[in-house]
């Protein structure tokens, strides 16, 4: 019998806000879904779109990208740059048919432990409904099964 589907969620977070927020959720003993794998980065400006693609390539069902609220960046402007990048990247993914629900963006401050916990629960539930992202994960096999050459 196959095991029930457990969503794999990868969260790329900045260390100054969202990671601290996740830390607060932990120290406040808030319970949230264990499906999220957090990757801590210095700033949202450090989050390359390649990270998102790599996470999907390695089998993530949903990717979350999260950082400081606008104006709160430790490096003054990292999140503003990231925001532009995401706007464009998100449009690109939508145009190439990667569902928008698979890539989520948020601002979570160091004080918002509860928001972080709620958000992870909500994303986990939504991903459970969406099911595994097999559409993308199966791309690797296409060449073996329906080679055009």
């Amino acid at each position: 019998m196959s095991e029930p589907f457990e969503p794999k969620i990868v969260a790329f977070v900045c260390t100054y806000c969202t990671y601290a927020g996740a830390d607060l959720a932990g120290t406040s003993r808030l319970k949230y879904a264990p499906n999220v794998r957090i990757v801590r980065l210095p700033c949202t400006g450090r989050i390359s779109p390649m990270f998102i693609l790599k996470a999907l390539q390695k089998g993530a069902d949903t990717v979350l990208v999260s950082g400081c609220h606008p104006g709160d960046c430790h490096f003054t402007a990292g999140n503003y740059h990231a925001r532009r990048r995401w706007t464009v990247f998100r449009a690109l993914l939508a145009f190439t048919g990667i569902p928008e629900e698979r890539i989520r963006f948020s601002w979570v401050s160091a004080a918002e432990g509860a928001k972080f916990a709620e958000m992870i629960n909500e994303i986990t539930e939504q991903t459970r409904k969406l099911g595994p992202f097999t559409q993308y994960q199966e791309l690797q096999k296409v060449i073996e099964t329906q080679s055009t050459y």
Partner: peptide, 12 residues
Amino acid sequence: SFKQDDPETFIL
């Protein structure tokens, strides 16, 4: 470059 009031409709 960026503007402080760039659109961000998709960010939770």
